[in-house]
Design a protein around this nucleic acid. Sequence first.
DNA 1: ATTCGTTGATGAAACGTTTCATCAACACGC
DNA 2: GCGTGTTGATGAAACGTTTCATCAACGAAT
Lengths: 338, 338
Amino acid sequence: MVSVKDVARAAGVSLGTVSNVLNRPDRVSETTRIRVEHAMVQLGFVRNEAARHLRAGRSKTIAFVVLDATNPFFSDVAQGAEEGAARRDYVLFLCNSDNREEREHQYLVRLQEQRVAGILVTPFDADDPFLQRLTARGIPVVVVDRTPSTPDVCAVAVDNQLGGRLAAEHLLDLGHESIAFVGGPHSIGQVHERWLGARAALVAAGLDEDRVMRLDTEAPSVAGGRHAGERLAGLSAARRPTAAFCANDLLALGLLQQCVALGIRVPDDLAIVGYDDIEFASAAAVPLTSIRQPRRELGLTAARLLLDEAENPQHRHEHVMFTPELVARASTRRSAGA
Amino acid sequence: MVSVKDVARAAGVSLGTVSNVLNRPDRVSETTRIRVEHAMVQLGFVRNEAARHLRAGRSKTIAFVVLDATNPFFSDVAQGAEEGAARRDYVLFLCNSDNREEREHQYLVRLQEQRVAGILVTPFDADDPFLQRLTARGIPVVVVDRTPSTPDVCAVAVDNQLGGRLAAEHLLDLGHESIAFVGGPHSIGQVHERWLGARAALVAAGLDEDRVMRLDTEAPSVAGGRHAGERLAGLSAARRPTAAFCANDLLALGLLQQCVALGIRVPDDLAIVGYDDIEFASAAAVPLTSIRQPRRELGLTAARLLLDEAENPQHRHEHVMFTPELVARASTRRSAGA
DNA sequence: ATTCGTTGATGAAACGTTTCATCAACACGC
DNA sequence: GCGTGTTGATGAAACGTTTCATCAACGAAT
């Protein structure tokens, strides 16, 4: 492997000059600069980032530890974040914690060892003390799509309780009085907050609390939604809710699919509201009503905050909250008989 | 930031001993070991990977440069690769080239600078000489989901021509004689190979070559599929094909959605075959017939090959080809009149 | 002719690890 | 009491950069 030393020898200059060509090309004369550059391509020199980083102490890499890379919601947020990183000449690595806390932890440790310039993370637990320790140790952290209770770490999120309320109020407006919430596990903050928002709206509307059915799922996935569909189908028509609000679109799509398969008509027998408004929501069997979140903007803002914290010494921690909006489609269209 | 030197001082041992605790705990006595470990947690010591890597020369990081992180196909492959990496105690970083060659190149350069242990990549151009240069310089590379024409780089892929043939033969079996291929740009190898496979099968079946309509799209995305749907809808019923084979499921979903919106019945007016069999394919308006690829296995094998090349000195380059299979669903169900 | 400033090149130190040859201490068998 | 291992700790060198103080050369100004 060829080093600056080799380049220096080949170009007949000192090692320091090679470094200057690399880092302050203006401080070196035209003629030697091209001579050195020539030697570099000649020898196939590739800067050793480890050495560079070790000495210089800074790195132009940030990472995004994401809860589930297969969820299109996160891919879109990540794309926004990448855009934000690229604008400031940073490079973004994605890490998939796959909803496993121990995996998340493993990634955070590795990233810390790599001394990345900063970490975006959608944590399993927004109040994980490990995150604060990272910030305290000087590694900028921005919590994405979760809201830690402490203000001493940056965060960007979308108001999940509001989203839950929007969904519930939409269903109430349509005359539904028996509503199921499909989601889980509730250890996932987003899921729980959406549930809280929805329940609050339903109770505020005077709905009897035990008419709100909570269908817990093992995971917020298509499979989880299918499973919930089976359970709903198993209920007598009298006991079955007339509407379901799903904690995300994957669940809603799974639920929808199972409903179609089992002969439950959507929206006539069961209205469905999803969450996230992923691209597939509008392409579903019955186009899904969903709660849309500003995904790219979320990622962009997160990257902006992170790089500010990394580069600006008088950075102040900040919690940014975006507002979701309801997108009504066929899956909650008012049925003829209602 | 606390270093081994600080730990050594705190524990009252030499710096070399601290390193031994880190790397060869068996060579150090029980009592000093726990004393050093205690000092480490006390001071919050975090190994500096840059320094470690610089000296030791090896790293336990691999990367996967992916063509489009928002495409569920790639997320699944990535999950397989991550699994394969984790098994051997490596960590996987994901990079999204977003179908942009210059972005891909940028990532490859950065990864090379970081001296990662290896790179998985789904390249824009499978024969990019840059990839071979990487391998030649000693950075293991495995090309994923593409087949380079040279054998001196590892590759894992699924037989795209076979997949195209399976799709075409399925449609032929159902009696279709006028078939459109929806996909593009053809500069993307997978798209083109699927097209070649399909065309070959159609021609072999005696179909007139100009009855095979090629609908090029700007991108293999849902939007591209929608656009193709508009163009198909614009044709008179007589000139319109009775079946469409889409280069991937995103296109198929977009096409399907537009068909439903514009009153073209699926499968009666237009049968649709997708490709990839992503999870959403079976949850679509009309469950999609698709070509399934062993996604996780693809990723797993790619990681296995990569780590073998990284660790085994007598590694031999290898091209692994997986076989796709057709999954028939409602979108190509034989219509009553056929 | 001397001083001065400018431009461009230099060499050594430093970053935080790992590695390796060396060494001290101690027990063992004769 | 003397070699001989064995175990565990040590200190220095090395990895490939960046940085910084220093220096040489040279023309301009006095």
